[in-house]
Nucleic acid binder design. Structure first.
Lengths: 189, 189
DNA sequence: AATTAGATAGAACGATCGGTCTATATTGTC
DNA sequence: GACAATATAGACCGATCGTTCTATCTAATT
């Protein structure tokens, strides 16, 4: 894989994260990456596709990092707790600026499938994953239902952590998640 | 108040909601509003201030609509349920495109105080309001803690409702909220 | 009827946008 | 050392950006 292409994705990810997708022009990416104009357009048909590549890379990085932080032999609740803890650590990161998928969705809406598809897929993958973990505790339907609530909690926590500059919101979200899991579990016995 | 100014705010709100803040140029707003260029700049120093005005208006409209949908004599849970029900109705609206405050925050970050302040204030007002309602059920600290969870649920539900085109997520969020309120209430007795 | 404030159309500003083209230079492979 | 692929700098494209200016016109107030 070309190192120039890697460099472009890396720099673009950083700039988009810091300033958003629309405000960052192609020129700025080129200068900051130290890459010639045509090199970008040889690797990507256009800016849209660079954004797609950035989101795609981000998707793979995040999922790998998340999966690495979850011990597969641990209990369901421990696994889910690890996911929430991963988010708290992320929120505390100095470069944290919200979820790039959410922001892409916010800027482009669902009208640009090339961009919005990845954002939605991320959400679905996360929900399904948590649903799978929950099947060891709950029947399938309840697991799916609870997983979608956990996703709401994660998304809401991510939003509020950025708005309030408060990483500990993840802990609060996990406390709520634990109550909901226990309650779903108790009800089902 | 000038009808032209009103017209500008109204049309800008519509366009920003549909396409985002950056992609909508001043020209487009002018054409769609049927207003001359200088009329806009006589009412607003610049596009930023028009965005501010749009968010400010939105803030007042939403709060008024929300407050009108909540029966002040009802029980705490009924009042909170009304807030969630309001969101569900909103999600089901054909023009629903996420929360404009969230999207402003996503596009501009916290670097533009003129814009981000209103978005954050909205979140704070909502959280405090729900906290106030909860004080009839819970001690002050528990009320504040629970309110911030309810805010997370509302924000997460708003995000996911747009991403999944699924208004019923509000009901799911309310079910979770009810469990959490009851649990906080039971623990405290 | 005179005055004043607000709105009008439209040209123009410099800056930036995403994208194309060309011609030269560098690189890695056989 | 030859060859093919990749990267380079930089001019250039038309379009759009937010904003300013001028000069005319309309509407309300006195």
């Amino acid at each position: 894989m070309s190192s120039k292409k890697e460099q472009l994705i890396k720099v673009a990810t950083d700039l988009f994260s810091r300033h958003g997708f629309h405000p960052v022009g192609v020129d700025r990416i080129l200068v900051e990456a130290g890459v010639a104009r045509m090199t970008l357009y040889n690797h990507f048909p256009g800016k849209d596709d660079l954004i797609s590549a950035v989101l795609d890379r981000r998707y793979q990085d995040i999922m790998a990092s998340l999966r690495a932080s979850v011990e597969p032999t641990a209990s369901a609740k421990e696994q889910l707790h690890a996911i929430f803890a991963w988010h708290e650590a992320w929120f505390a990161t100095p470069e944290f600026a919200g979820c790039l998928f959410e922001r892409a969705l916010a800027e482009f809406g669902t009208d640009y499938p090339k961009i919005s598809t990845i954002a939605i897929q991320y959400k679905q993958t996360m929900t399904e994953w948590m649903g799978d973990i929950l099947t060891s505790l709950l029947p399938e339907q309840a697991a799916a239902r609870t997983a979608s609530i956990l996703m709401i909690l994660l998304d809401g926590a991510t939003i509020d952590a950025r708005a309030f500059h408060n990483p500990t919101i993840a802990t609060r979200a996990w406390n709520a998640a634990e109550v909901l899991i226990d309650q779903a579990n108790a009800r089902q016995v």
